[in-house]
Computed example of a mutant assay.
Amino acid sequence: MSGSGEGAHLALTDPGPLPAAVADPDAVLARLRRSLATLPWPVSLRLNRNRRILISLRGSARRGMRLSIHGGLLGFPAAIDALPQWIRAGGRLTSPSVRAALDELGRTLRAGERAVTKPLELEPLGGQLDLVATMDRIHAQHFAHLPKPAVAWGRGRRQKPTRHVRFATYRSRPVAMVMVSPRLNQPWVARLFIDYVIYHELCHHAQACTPLRGERAHSRRFHAWERGFPGYAQATRWERDHVDRFLA
């Protein structure tokens, strides 16, 4: 596939009020269209109001890319100009201007949320987390019909995350294993949230134990199981309210 001027297509949703710094949204969108048109493959753009995932990239060069960005990024001209480079890199944060824009926008959005609602406080861990005992308890309460996976602490990263935190991961091979981030082993972290993280990974374990052909990791079946966690709403709200502490 070749050509550069016909690749970019805008498929816009209502992004809500744009930043005050965007004096001329139409001009910014035109600039973004021209920027994306420099790519040698089709790119569709969608503006969103997703406060958790500010930017995402799907698709392939062969079939075309689907770019979704928070409307607030239109207030960062340098990041807009750097998007083609970011897309060429497969969505990896190699561009300082894109990274800086995401960091600043994320802080602004989270500050706005805190100003509207008081952060939810739940019973904290208060000490060291007994990871094996926690897995044993959650498995026995909710997944006793399945073989119990192993559990272990993951490796702590030297650099702190700037956009999101991976609290745990699941793998089914060579043996079923849940790896938990040491970031959860802090006295201020809510016990309910830790339980939810383990439960979340056990939902992935349930998928592996009862596979469906072509099923995505976060499928409808998975989400139905996940929402069955007692205290799901509280745990996910606590995560939203306190994620900045993990990123600090």
Rank of each mutant, 00 (worst) to 15 (best):
G5M: 14
E6R: 14
L10D: 00
D14I: 03
D14H: 13
P15H: 01
G16I: 02
P17V: 07
P17I: 06
P19Q: 03
P19C: 02
V28S: 04
V28F: 02
L32D: 00
L32W: 03
P40E: 10
L45Q: 06
R46H: 13
L47W: 00
L47M: 04
I53C: 15
S56Y: 04
A61N: 10
R63M: 10
M65F: 12
L74P: 00
F76H: 12
A78P: 01
A79N: 01
A89M: 10
A89L: 11
R92A: 11
A101G: 06
E104I: 02
E104N: 10
L105P: 00
T108N: 14
A111S: 11
T117Q: 15
L129E: 10
L129V: 09
L131W: 07
V132C: 10
T134L: 12
I138Y: 01
H139P: 06
Q141W: 11
H142K: 08
F143N: 01
F143T: 00
A144H: 09
P149L: 03
A150T: 12
A150P: 08
W153V: 05
Y170E: 05
S172W: 09
S172D: 14
R173Y: 08
R173A: 14
P174A: 07
A176M: 02
N185K: 06
P187M: 05
V189S: 04
V189K: 02
R191S: 11
R191M: 09
H200P: 07
H200Q: 09
E201Q: 12
L202E: 00
H204W: 09
A206T: 06
T210C: 14
P211T: 05
R213V: 15
E215Y: 04
F222V: 06
H223N: 12
A233F: 11
A235T: 05
R240Q: 14
R245L: 12
A248P: 03
